[in-house]
Amino acid sequence: MNQATADRTEIAVVGSGPSGMIAALLLSRRGFSTVLVGPRAKADPRTTALLDASVAILGDLGIWEDIAPLAAPLRQMRLIDDTGRLVRAPETLFDSAEIDLDAFGYNVLNNDLNSVLEKALAASSVTRIEALADAIRPGDDGVEIDIEGRATPLRVQLLVASDGRSSRARDAAGIAVQRWSYPQSALVANLSHQRPHDDTSTEFHTPHGPFTLVPLKGNRSSLVWVGEPKEIVAMQALDDAAFAREVERHAKSILGPMTLESGRQVFPLSGMKAKTVAANRIALVGETAHVFPPIGAQGLNLSLRDVADLGDACERARSNGQDIGGGAALSAYAAARRGDIDTRIFGVDTLNRTLLADFLPIQMVRGLGLYLAGRVGPLRRLLMREGVAPSFRGRARSA
């Protein structure tokens, strides 16, 4: 790998989680001299469902072929109303074949995904600096980055901020955020089970949030259990065998007896949205720009669309002879992302809050919506296509 110097480095990506690694790979493949700043990703037993549009992005980077053997296809998605309320929605099944897809997406262990990305980085022209960014100073013609353990700062035209929801880079750009919370916590774990999942993700809608089992390779599934904090804390406190029995009970034994494979992780549910995704030579991607509940497999998929649109904005700026970190390029990126981010956050937030609502008319509207989705083919197919990737999604355009 080439050793970057401040006077010839175009882009620094700060933050080395999956979004940061993919951003560095994509920008480097598009011909920009790129530095990735951040320590290696920590072990992460959670999973990520990569939807079809994300698979296409990873395919263009030449790394999907290494991820595919490690991932389980999601060919069907089943929604079951388990609220026990007076008005309940009928069971609804979405089948990827109906919109001419082999699968909606593929579920993969984060550890496996990170391993493939690390291997791709090692073979790329991306310069890796495995240290934290201490200070970030945006200016009129570049961004200076003080890096832990380095005597001289790194200077770049554009900084890509992928350093998470408490981002120093976002603060340096002067970008404000809106934050909110939910009266819920989420528990995630991986389990093996006796019966096959048949490549079907099953989501039980409960009065306190969705309880979702997503296929993994073999007779295994990842669990995302959203509920009242006291309920989730009680589940976390059970021993492994008792917890597996509770999961089987909540899943109506559709997958048979279960065995816990990985440690359980619990976190409170919250949301965050940056007021803009670009300012002062700093572009935000991933959880630096948006955070919402783990519902509908939208998190990393939205982040990958951030990365793809940022790459488009940089390429277009270069072809027009413009500064890749200048106002025109960043405005084009922000415009391209606005509708996608706003609609995804609104959709996930609305779905979650309708589950929590005790107001009968809201329950009736939700039930009617799912009834129509199950019975009206054109509506069902539209919802499936929009769930995989927004059809209106704009492309970055420079002025």
Rank of each mutant, 00 (worst) to 15 (best):
241 A>Q: 09
239 D>G: 00
250 H>Q: 14
359 F>H: 04
170 R>M: 01
281 R>F: 00
394 G>C: 03
193 H>F: 05
93 L>C: 02
2 N>Q: 13
246 E>H: 07
387 G>C: 08
15 G>I: 08
315 E>F: 04
287 E>Y: 13
332 A>K: 08
140 D>K: 15
377 G>E: 11
129 I>P: 01
172 A>Y: 02
179 R>L: 04
178 Q>P: 05
349 D>I: 08
188 V>G: 04
5 T>K: 14
383 L>E: 03
343 T>W: 14
240 D>Q: 08
251 A>I: 02
45 P>W: 06
347 G>F: 07
194 Q>Y: 13
167 S>A: 09
171 D>K: 15
93 L>Y: 03
123 A>Y: 08
101 L>I: 04
238 L>H: 04
26 L>H: 08
112 D>E: 11
332 A>H: 10
113 L>K: 03
100 D>T: 10
67 I>Q: 11
212 T>H: 09
139 G>N: 11
169 A>I: 12
207 P>M: 13
396 A>H: 04
338 R>N: 06
235 M>I: 03
128 R>S: 12
367 G>K: 06
376 V>I: 14
174 G>V: 12
107 N>M: 11
333 Y>L: 13
329 A>R: 04
366 R>M: 11
351 L>D: 02
372 L>T: 11
181 S>E: 12
152 T>P: 00
44 D>Q: 01
230 K>Q: 14
44 D>I: 01
394 G>W: 04
200 T>M: 14
145 I>G: 03
376 V>S: 07
5 T>Q: 12
204 F>R: 13
40 R>G: 15
272 M>L: 15
395 R>I: 14
311 G>K: 00
231 E>N: 14
121 L>F: 06
141 D>H: 15
196 P>F: 07
78 R>G: 05
67 I>V: 15
231 E>V: 12
310 L>R: 09
295 I>F: 01
325 G>N: 00
353 R>H: 04
200 T>H: 07
327 G>P: 08
272 M>Y: 04
285 V>I: 01
181 S>L: 02
31 G>P: 04
160 V>A: 06
326 G>S: 09
29 R>Q: 15
306 D>C: 00
95 D>Q: 12
31 G>M: 09
172 A>R: 03
361 P>M: 01
342 D>N: 08
68 A>D: 10
180 W>F: 09
205 H>W: 09
303 S>R: 03
335 A>D: 13
325 G>S: 02
142 G>S: 15
99 I>L: 04
56 A>G: 10
339 G>T: 14
201 S>M: 14
197 H>G: 02
14 V>T: 04
94 F>Q: 06
333 Y>M: 07
19 S>A: 15
16 S>F: 10
344 R>G: 08
176 A>L: 05
269 L>V: 10
363 Q>D: 10
246 E>P: 00
25 L>H: 02
72 A>T: 10
196 P>M: 01
134 D>I: 12
40 R>H: 15
132 L>S: 15
325 G>P: 01
93 L>S: 05
249 R>P: 06
2 N>I: 13
307 V>P: 00
83 T>E: 05
80 I>T: 14
252 K>D: 15
5 T>N: 13
367 G>P: 02
36 L>W: 03
150 R>K: 07
135 A>C: 08
255 L>D: 02
386 E>F: 06
323 D>P: 01
116 V>W: 00
50 L>H: 04
27 L>P: 05
211 F>N: 08
39 P>R: 05
317 A>T: 06
30 R>L: 12
